[in-house]
């Protein structure tokens, strides 16, 4: 178990280094970062001076070394627009995202697990068809479109809910639905298909042969096994969550890290964008590590493996 976690941890680190490397070299491909930072009418002397202070005149590998060393100290450069360390900007916005994401994920699980189980148990029946249709729609509907549609219906036409920005509890409803629809749909379909597989297994047959009630067969014997493939596909859903957060926060003018990513692109705030991408990667690695531990907890074959 300890070795499993250590291995996962090291894999996460390797992933982070890769992300940092790609971010760094992609940035250099788009030209000298100094040009982005200077006003358009800047003098050539100022340009040279800035390049020197930023260390952008040395060979590329040296620059990369400096970049990595700084990154390890938690310094990912200064945001051009905010004129403060990019990491600080990131952390000032993170709490706002954390106010919607966990709730969304919890909601997704609360809805998706029972719906997925019910669709599997009543395969081909009404509930399965309805939730299947909703699932397909939920996966196929782009977040931005859903967000705009919800705003149009509930804010513009009906005037029931606020259309943007943070505020009281009613401000959370539309962003949560926008961000959560994809997750609910994704989880639900995953749970349904892995439940179907588990329901068909020999150990479920044996559980029934023992005379156990359907409640125990489904919620004890099936669910835990059905969650194993779901957890292992978690990474795919995380990717969806990150892009979903960018789009959702942008549509709802929600001042979180998703919106920050969008702003960094729009304002060509290159150091900030770099920082946001790397910090997003850090978050994902942390979440995935938690999921990996959960995974090991659910599946003894992993927990007890040498």
């Amino acid at each position: 178990m300890r070795r499993y976690i250590l291995r996962r941890f090291l894999q996460g680190l390797v992933l982070l280094v890769l992300v940092a490397t790609i971010v760094f070299f992609l940035g250099r491909l788009t030209g000298n970062p100094a040009d982005l930072m200077l006003p358009e009418d800047a003098l050539e002397e100022d340009r040279v001076a800035l390049i020197e202070t930023l260390g952008l005149d040395g060979p590329l590998h040296k620059q990369f070394g400096i970049f990595l060393a700084n990154a390890l100290r938690g310094d990912l450069g200064d945001s051009i627009r905010h004129r403060e360390p990019a990491v600080d900007v990131f952390f000032s916005r993170l709490p706002n995202t954390l106010k919607i994401v966990p709730g969304t994920m919890a909601l997704a699980l609360i809805l998706a697990i029972p719906l997925g189980i019910l669709s599997a148990l009543y395969r081909g029946r009404m509930i399965d068809r309805v939730s299947g249709a909703i699932g397909v729609l939920g996966i196929a509907t782009p977040n931005f479109w859903l967000g705009i549609l919800l705003i149009y219906v509930f804010s513009v036409q009906l005037g029931w809910l606020p259309s943007a920005r943070m505020g009281g509890p009613q401000h959370y409803i539309l962003p949560t639905i926008t961000l959560g629809t994809f997750l609910v749909a994704g989880f639900m379909r995953l749970i349904r298909s892995s439940m179907l597989e588990v329901l068909d297994s020999e150990f479920v047959k044996l559980a029934r042969i023992k005379g156990l009630s359907e409640t125990i067969v489904v919620w004890k014997h099936c669910l835990r096994n059905a969650l194993i493939p779901v957890l292992s596909l978690w990474g795919v859903l995380m990717g969806g969550l990150v892009t979903g957060a960018i789009v959702t926060e942008t549509v709802f003018a929600w001042p979180g890290i998703g919106r920050l990513t969008y702003e960094a692109v729009i304002f060509r705030d290159y150091p900030l964008l770099q920082a946001v991408i790397i910090m997003d990667a850090v978050l994902i690695v942390i979440i995935n590590l938690v999921v990996d531990i959960l995974y090991a907890y659910v599946d003894p074959r992993i927990r007890l493996a040498e």
Binding site: F203, K205, L206, I209, N225, D299
Partner: peptide, 18 residues
Amino acid sequence: GSKIAMILQDPQTSLNPV
């Protein structure tokens, strides 16, 4: 389970792995 019980063919799959 109480009056009529059964042993399945493949022990590799008939016990719950978790």
